[in-house]
Design a protein around this nucleic acid. Structure first.
Lengths: 130, 130
DNA sequence: GGTGCAGTACGAAAGTTTTCGTAATTAAGA
DNA sequence: TCTTAATTACGAAAACTTTCGTACTGCACC
């Protein structure tokens, strides 16, 4: 399996938009980015061209305005980022991370219930597999 | 409360060593860093001087070789990093992060049990507070 | 065919972080 | 006191990311 590259901040924002909304032109991405923070069109274009080089994106050049797609799996990137965080500051222990999240200040009852449900689901899934 | 600065990668490594092992000289930090990856002594020194300026560290200059301490709480930094990750790629939902961690490949039974225990503890703590 | 508009390509500047060379400083021992 | 070794101070280069200006391209419309 190819090693997952850790995207930069700007790259991550673009990937997130593509994961969420599907393939888009530079113009469309740039407009969405501008909802949060003003950024020039050619800036966005340049970043996306770099991402293309790195293999983070692919594009369809049929039309005049090229259509870009993410070429890296959302789950993989997220897992990679979690792994980095866990290794950097949680001594490699994922449960330490989870406990820090839950223990922190205002983990709502709702969130905790959601997680309990999910654990139940995982456990039932494991049972089935045995 | 003062706004927590997000430390850079190099800064985070140094903070982690100070949190884990307590106050140290630049020489000592540099040696520990070199266990992982070769880095020049003056590089480490420079980073630590910058961290001092930013207020991330304090130092005792009594002795010739200055002794540095972390001046920022481990928990605060970790929470800040979690918050950033959650905002960047989990749409602000902490439970999404937790579920991604748990659901990922090989969350061991042991880890899950650890987390279940912790949730029980949180719930009992809440009950007591009511 | 010429003009204008929207897009792409690309180099280079600006900003940030990391790295390191070199000079200044201090302390200890000959 | 002089020399040496370890340390600190500091500027600047190197590396990486983001930003943008400008030139080039292709197409539609007149």
């Amino acid at each position: 399996m190819a090693n997952i590259i850790q995207p930069t901040d700007a790259e991550l924002k673009i990937l997130t938009l593509l994961w969420r909304h599907g393939a888009m032109s530079v113009r469309q991405i740039n407009e969405k980015l501008n909802n949060e923070k003003e950024v020039g069109y050619t800036t966005t274009l340049k970043i996306m061209q770099i991402m293309l080089e790195k293999g983070l994106l692919t594009r369809d050049t049929e039309l005049k305005s090229h259509i870009y797609s993410a070429n890296i799996q959302e789950t993989n990137v997220k897992n990679k980022m979690i792994k980095n965080l866990v290794n950097q500051v949680f001594g490699g222990s994922r449960s330490n991370l989870v406990m820090q999240v839950l223990g922190n200040s205002n983990a709502s009852l709702e969130e905790i219930n959601e997680i309990k449900e999910y654990i139940k689901f995982l456990e039932s899934k494991n049972k089935t597999e045995e």
